[in-house]
Amino acid sequence: MSLPRLWTISQELDPVRAMRREMENAFRAFDQKPSPPEIGAGAPAISVAETNDAFEVTAELPGVDEKDINVSLDDNQLVISGEKKAQSTKEEKDWHVEERSYGSFYRSMLLPFEPEEGAVEAHFDKGVLHLTIKKPAKTVKTTKTIDIKTGAPPSASPISNKAAAPSKAA
C-alpha cells in the first residue's frame, strides 16, 4: 500500500497534461466515427505485373458495364477511365441503408516504353478488366549466360606481366 502524495499537481492545473488529454480524446473520437462513404467511383484498384515480354494490368471495376469503360494510350501513358452509372432504386421497399458509389473513374500509368500498334489486348470478365501490353522487341530483356573459367585472370598491366614472366639470362 502506498501513501498518498501530499504535494501533487492537479491535472487541471498542468497545461501540458490537459492538452495531452484533449488530444487523446480527439484521436479517440476520430477513430470511433465511421468515415463517410466515398462520393463517385474514384480510382479503381489496379494490379501490375511484368513478364519477359509484356505488362499485365488488372483493374477492379465491379458494377461497371463494359460499354462504359475507356482504355486509351497517349504515347507511353495508359489511361483507364469510364463511368459507373446509378441504378434505379425500387420504391417498393423502405430502404434504411444503401451504400453504392456512382460517378466517373480515372486511372493512368506511365509505361517504360511506347507500345507498338496492336500491342494492347483488353478483356472484361466478372467486373475485372484484364490488359496485356506487349513490350516492343527492342525492350525485351534477354539473359546471357557467362562462362566461368578456372584459374587466375590474366593480368591487364604490362608491367606485372613482365615481372611474372621468367627472365631469360644468357
Rank of each mutant, 00 (worst) to 15 (best):
A18S: 13
M19A: 03
R20Q: 07
R21C: 07
E22W: 00
F30T: 01
K33I: 02
K33V: 03
P36M: 02
P37S: 14
E38F: 05
G40L: 13
G42P: 12
A43F: 06
P44Q: 10
S47I: 09
V48L: 14
A49L: 12
A49T: 15
N52W: 01
F55Y: 14
E56P: 00
E56W: 12
V57I: 15
T58W: 01
E60F: 04
E60D: 07
P62S: 08
V64Y: 05
D65M: 13
I69R: 12
N70E: 13
N70Y: 06
N70A: 11
D74W: 11
D74A: 12
D75T: 08
Q77G: 07
L78G: 11
L78P: 07
V79H: 09
V79C: 14
I80F: 06
G82T: 02
E83C: 00
E83R: 13
K84Q: 15
K84M: 15
K90Y: 11
W95P: 10
H96V: 10
E99V: 08
R100D: 06
R100W: 04
F105H: 12
R107N: 08
L111G: 03
F113M: 06
E114I: 15
E117M: 09
E117A: 13
G118H: 10
A119D: 09
A119W: 04
K126A: 00
K126H: 03
V128H: 03
V128M: 02
L129G: 07
L129V: 07
H130V: 08
H130S: 05
K134E: 11
K135N: 08
K135P: 03
K141Y: 04
K141L: 09
K141A: 12
T145N: 11
T145A: 15
I146N: 06
I148S: 00
S155D: 04
S157L: 14
